[in-house]
């Protein structure tokens, strides 16, 4: 069975294109616009990897990751951000962030990162 990837992104174009590309690569993709929606999805659906935008309308990426970890999620995160300097406070590795990508991001980079993380998990 194909691994399931969760994309949490409030920008519609980014969200849809990311889903398109990941589906082309052969993954099962679930999308969420906001943090709360993502938490809800994770309660019912097993996820293997999550792409998170750091600026969400209802919460920021840090808060979302903390809450997901708090509700028992164990899958790794790939963070997407338009401004790396402002998005993080402190070390995020313990939270399970495997990769941080700065927008705009190259498709090859996404492909490499996803494959690397998922093969390591397998």
């Amino acid at each position: 069975m194909n691994p399931t990837i969760l994309v949490v992104e409030d920008e519609q174009a980014m969200r849809l294109l990311l889903r398109e590309f990941l589906e082309i690569l052969g993954y099962t993709v679930i999308v969420a616009e906001q943090g709360q929606e993502a938490i809800g999805i994770c309660r019912t659906t097993p996820v293997d990897l999550a792409f998170l935008d750091m600026n969400l309308p209802d919460m920021n990426g840090m808060e979302l990751m903390n809450r997901l970890r708090g509700s028992g999620a164990v899958f790794p995160f790939v963070v997407l951000s338009a401004n790396l300097r402002e998005s993080f406070t402190g070390d995020v590795t313990p939270l399970g962030v495997r990769e941080i990508l700065e927008k705009p991001v190259d498709l090859d980079v996404i492909e490499t990162v996803v494959k690397k993380i998922l093969s390591a998990a397998a």
Partner: peptide, 18 residues
């Protein structure tokens, strides 16, 4: 401005690459 531009440009680049 940087943040906004990058956010706008990200899907454009992805679209073009696709």
């Amino acid at each position: 401005i940087a943040h906004e531009f990058k956010n706008r440009l990200a899907p454009l680049r992805m679209f073009a690459q696709l």
